[in-house]
């Protein structure tokens, strides 16, 4: 059943409406039932989660007898952003994923953020799906703040992702949806996969399998459970960053997700004007290329690749 989570008036004859699809078992919802929330679309330029929402709803609805709890699917936490190909909320300065847990007073974006948190509170688990950005392609991964490592890593292992990255806490990240929900007692996993403004169907299928496995783990599903991958797990210190030092266009020489040897050629930053190689990018270590730049134009500082040292995925 499609429900309205929060609705607020826009200036001229329209309301912005954040909706969820509540899927309940054949016998209906009962007190004490477990609840999983799948949310996505906080950043309007990240679309991979849209297909994941469809796939999960479709799988559950085709096997509704296997559902033993409640699943809430929130496909668009920032519907205006998705509709306008805008990462943030149009006409609002702050990143929507930096204003949680929101505010009952306002402005509109913070009011909406507060209502989203209230709606999800009490769930047994939440999965927040992101899609990198328009610049970088990522393998399916779960990113976990070290403060919540003990609770979340066992759940993340069920999600059928390639990689679990436990990262250090940063104050600025204390205003994300995931941080706020974890703080409110809802174990929340952040998935990053694919690339902005596009769908990667294979990754979406992979995560949908993982969501079914997670539901089984949580006692929400007693149907067939897909086999899940054993993810690579790491902490910050093992991740190496390759940033451009020169402006130009980046042309990769290797495939995303490949294994690299230290010193192996990852790609070049080229000058279209002079026809020269401005910079050659070499792997800083033996490892796994889990992030690779897709958008070619770069400045000094543009992230080109991340390599997980020593990993064999």
């Amino acid at each position: 059943m499609v429900k309205t989570v929060v609705s607020t008036a826009l200036p001229i004859g329209e309301r912005v409406v954040i909706q969820k699809n509540r899927i309940t078992p054949e016998g209906g919802e009962r007190p004490g039932m477990k609840r999983l929330c799948l949310c996505t679309g906080t950043h309007g330029d990240e679309l991979e989660g849209q297909y994941v929402c469809y796939l999960l709803a479709d799988r559950i609805q085709k096997n509704l007898r296997c559902l033993k709890g409640v699943v809430d699917i929130y496909p668009a936490l920032n519907p205006l952003g998705i509709d306008t190909i805008t990462r943030g909320i149009p006409m609002f300065d702050l990143d929507m994923n930096r204003i949680f847990p929101g505010n009952n007073v306002g402005p509109m974006a913070e009011f909406v953020a507060g209502r989203i948190i209230e709606d999800i509170k009490g769930a047994d688990c939440c999965v927040d799906v992101h899609a990198s950005n328009v610049f970088l392609r990522e393998v399916p991964q779960v990113r976990i703040n070290e403060k919540t490592e003990q609770t979340l890593v066992p759940l993340a292992r069920r999600l059928n992702v390639d990689y679990i990255w436990v990262h250090a806490n940063a104050t600025v990240l204390e205003s994300t949806l995931a941080y706020s929900l974890n703080d409110a007692g809802v174990p929340t996993l952040v998935v990053e996969m694919g690339i902005g403004l596009r769908l990667t169907p294979a990754y979406c299928e992979q995560l949908a399998d993982g969501l079914i496995a997670l539901m089984a783990e949580l006692g929400l599903w007693d149907g067939e459970v897909p086999a899940v991958k054993k993810p690579v797990e790491s902490r910050d210190g093992e991740v190496h960053y390759c940033n451009a030092e020169q402006p130009g266009i980046f042309v990769p020489a290797v495939a995303h997700g490949c294994q690299l040897r230290k010193g192996q050629h990852i790609g070049d930053v080229l000058s279209p004007l002079t026809g020269r190689v401005a910079e050659s990018i070499l792997s800083p270590c033996d490892g796994w290329l889990f992030t690779l730049r897709e958008y070619p134009v770069c400045y000094a500082g543009s992230l080109l690749a991340r390599v997980l040292g020593g990993a064999d995925a």
Binding site: T8, A9, L10, P11, I12, V105, G106, P107, M108, F111
Partner: peptide, 8 residues
């Protein structure tokens, strides 16, 4: 000149 509901 235009305002959304809940704007401060």
């Amino acid at each position: 000149p235009l305002v959304m509901e809940h704007a401060i």
